[in-house]
Design a protein around this nucleic acid. Structure first.
Lengths: 165, 165
DNA sequence: GCTGATTTTCAATTCTTTTTGAAAATATTT
DNA sequence: AAATATTTTCAAAAAGAATTGAAAATCAGC
């Protein structure tokens, strides 16, 4: 799955290992269980921390750092959604709005009587950009709702969709 | 966006060009507009056809093949959803079910009185697998509904979610 | 079935991303 | 603050993915 989600193989593996593990694990555990280097383990754990899907755990009487993964799949879902919105949807929307501004600038003012073909082309381009923007804004809005609804609210929302076939 | 969606840059560019273009375009158009090789254009167009987001158009009196992109963003959304379900969700679910079978096999039969720690570990592993499977099955089910609902039904469903905050 | 136009294929190459490993930095204990 | 344990960093190496270009395959009309 890793590659189609845009994360590296070791990130997926480390997370899976932590998610399925009962105990917290330290860097050396990852290295031996998954056969990866110390550097790789360190960077991978850091990325997972940045995504907010794992957390550090300190054990008294032990200098090493241990890690554990979020166990609630709904919470995990919301965390990933929040992060993808920030990293993907919002920047995309920003770019699209810039494009629309550019395109609107080129577009001739309110309707000329005889619609010359070039104006029509620009109008069509504008419309397509608008459709795409409207769609991404909708995705953005749904993300907001799913992301903030509580675990139960989320499951409910999802059941609503299932009903509205 | 391309990399975080697991498609190549040229695929994204070719699709964007076709989506925003008024006219249908042929391979040579792609090559000159996007400055890519013939081979690359050919493979990229093929992938987009496989995804079902563009289609071939034959013009009478012209031997070249032309292409056009789906213009309806909701339809595009459903097409991509259908394809991702097939390529990602279903294979993932298959793997997860295999994992659960394996895990269930290792798991000791109905409750021993004194729960030895090893059995508890296995039980916990099983539960986590089950949670994940349940979640992916839910995603699968939502995909089915979104994918099959008509354009209007989809927009409606999405508005339902927005309401159920 | 021949000819010329067009598209596809794929080994070699280029470009990108990921991983390694050892040095540097940081933290902990005595 | 020295000694030791642990984590982080990052240049270099390896692995992986995308692209090229030219040969091979396909196709359309004669």
């Amino acid at each position: 799955m890793a590659s189609s989600w845009g994360i590296s193989r070791s990130m997926a593996e480390v997370h899976a290992l932590l998610y399925l593990s009962d105990e917290t694990l330290n860097t050396d555990d990852m290295m031996s269980r998954l056969d990866i280097s110390r550097g790789s383990a360190s960077m991978t754990l850091r990325s997972l921390l940045d995504w907010g899907v794992i957390s550090r755990v300190h054990r008294r009487g032990d200098r090493k750092e241990y890690f554990s993964a979020e166990q609630d799949v709904w919470k995990l879902f919301r965390t990933i959604l929040r992060e993808r919105k920030k990293r993907e949807i919002e920047p995309l929307l920003d770019e699209l709005l810039i494009c629309r501004d550019l395109s609107a600038m080129l577009n001739p003012g309110r309707k000329k009587r005889k619609l010359d073909p070039e104006a029509a082309r620009l109008k069509a381009l504008n419309d397509r950009l608008d459709n795409m923007i409207e769609f991404v804004e909708m995705i953005n809005s749904v993300s907001n709702h799913l992301m903030n609804s509580s675990g139960k609210g989320l499951e409910l929302a999802v059941k609503l969709i299932s009903k509205a076939s």
